[in-house]
Design a protein around this nucleic acid. Structure first.
Length: 431
RNA sequence: GGUGAGGUGGCCGAGAGGCUGAAGGCGCUCCCCUGCUAAGGGAGUAUAGAGUUUAUAGCUCUAUCGAGGGUUCGAAUCCCUCCCUCACCGCCA
């Protein structure tokens, strides 16, 4: 959510900035509602104030033993006016809220303008795509051929499309990856390891921006009763982790707050029928190690570089070729001011595919969730800046390893960094 | 799931229809006093929103005592619903 100031003073400027990312702000409607809001709020509050004062007078009159019936009648009439004004105000505020909660974050100045991923800007590359003296297979072919590897047929039977079963060496490799990532981030990068719920309430989803706009991307849990709070499966551990600071005021000394968690993530993938249907690339359920930081506003852009670097470390230590891309305005997520994607090389697709997305959300999420901090000696708390990134998507990392480390005989070499987590196993073989 | 007790400011804890944004204490901040230490005295100490304003300074107003609804001229206080916490029992990994 943007600061309400953006919609009062300088709304035109806000509209211009939003237009950069292809969002059209309804300036006229907002202006009209704002005029109404102001008038109604002033009226409501002054009525309220008058009623409070009159009621106090009644109390004093009672104390003196006077007859209060005429006074009461007067104040009663006041109350009716107040109720009417309140109802009107509420309506206007709801309309405003509707519009405002659907407005995306403002892109940072240095974010290139563009409509879609075509206009993203490559920032850097690491590693060389491996050269094979045979035709490289894709991860599905490799994984299914391995002794106890990937098994999509069984997953289809027990659940349905876009789910996977992993077995044997592949399942272990998958587990090794999460262990490796968590150890790296906690031991080398200073993150606190956490374990978090994968089912969250809607206040949390509002806080990070998945709701109200993107409910169809989520799996929703049926509540036990109609009055229970609505719950959904998390699409990313960003949701529980960032909501650590919802409705909190953090001491300055505790910043930056750096959290990591391994979790399953669930996405309904509504609207992506037919895209990446083969293999592990686009699943309804996948594992991810998430990085989240809560920092002071002046530190957030540096923190984005740092956090992205932490995700890059995983790829580098695994020896996976990748490139770093600065997303253009049109390709950024709803809540982001600036986003880097890390794209790993996939030989079978002969291209780079997203494996991590690292974003600075500025104060956008913090404002929604009232996540604040207080500077030493300062009276007023300030909004935090929040950042998050995948460090990394485990399933896609597995894909990258299967494809980049595949051998002519169909076996897959285990990257050295993972061997301590695999009891020294150097290679996963067929048969 | 059952029974019982509760949810009040950073924390503890009073209040049981009006003078309570909320006593008292602890903590914290500033000031004074005191060779050091210990102790003492005084002042201050929630958040959000709106209006005014060059101002994130002041001033004025509104809201908030778990949440939502209701009764009332007026609710922390009365009524209803829900949520949560604690204790014991049942069940379970």
């Amino acid at each position: 959510m943007l600061d309400a100031k953006h919609f009062r003073d300088g709304i035109e400027e806000t509209a211009v900035q939003l237009a950069r990312r292809g969002f059209e702000l309804d300036v006229n409607t907002l202006k009209a509602l704002e005029v109404q809001r102001k008038e109604l709020q002033v009226r409501t509050e002054s009525l309220q104030s008058e009623r409070n004062a009159r009621s106090k007078e009644i109390g004093q009159a009672v104390g003196r033993g006077e007859d209060t019936a005429p006074l009461k009648a007067q104040v009663g009439a006041l109350g009716d006016q107040l109720d009417a004004a309140k109802a009107e105000l509420q309506q206007v505020q709801a309309s405003l809220q509707d519009i405002i909660s659907g407005v995306p974050n403002l892109p940072a100045a240095e974010v290139p303008e563009g409509l879609d991923e075509e206009q993203n800007v490559e920032v850097s590359r690491f590693g060389e795509p491996p050269v094979f003296d045979f035709t490289p297979k894709d991860h599905v072919e490799i994984g299914e051929a391995l002794n106890n590897g990937l098994d999509f047929d069984t997953a289809r039977k027990i659940t349905g499309a876009r789910f996977a079963v992993m077995k044997g060496g592949v399942a272990r490799l998958h587990r090794a990856l999460t262990q490796f990532m968590l150890d790296l981030h906690t031991e080398q990068h200073g993150y606190l390891e956490t374990y978090v719920p994968v089912i969250v309430n809607h206040a949390s989803l509002q806080g990070t921006g998945q709701l109200p706009k993107f409910g169809e991307d989520l799996f929703h849990v049926e509540g036990e009763s109609q009055d229970k709070v609505a719950l959904s499966l998390i699409p990313t551990a960003e949701v529980p982790l960032t909501n650590f600071v919802r409705d909190e005021i953090i001491d300055e000394e505790q910043l930056p707050m750096k959290l990591t968690a391994h979790s399953a993530c669930f996405r309904s993938e509504a609207g992506s029928h037919g895209r990446d249907t083969r293999g592990l690339i686009r699943q309804h359920q996948f594992d991810k190690v998430e990085l989240v930081q809560m920092v002071k506003p002046e530190d957030s852009m540096a923190a984005l570089e740092e956090l992205t670097g932490h995700a890059e470390q995983v790829l580098q230590q695994l020896g996976l070729p990748y490139r770093k891309v600065l997303l253009c305005t049109g390709d950024m997520g709803f809540s982001a001011t600036k986003t880097y994607d890390l794209e790993v090389w996939l030989p079978a697709q002969n291209t780079y595919r997203e494996i991590s997305s690292c974003s600075n959300m500025g104060d956008f999420q913090a404002r929604r969730m009232q996540g604040r901090f207080r500077r030493k000696g300062a009276k007023k708390p300030e909004l935090l800046h929040t950042l998050n990134g995948s460090g990394l998507a485990v399933g896609r990392t597995l894909v990258a390893i299967l494809e980049n480390y595949q051998q002519a005989d169909g076996s897959v070499v285990v990257p050295e960094a993972l061997r301590p987590y695999m009891a020294g196993v150097e290679r996963i073989s067929q048969g």
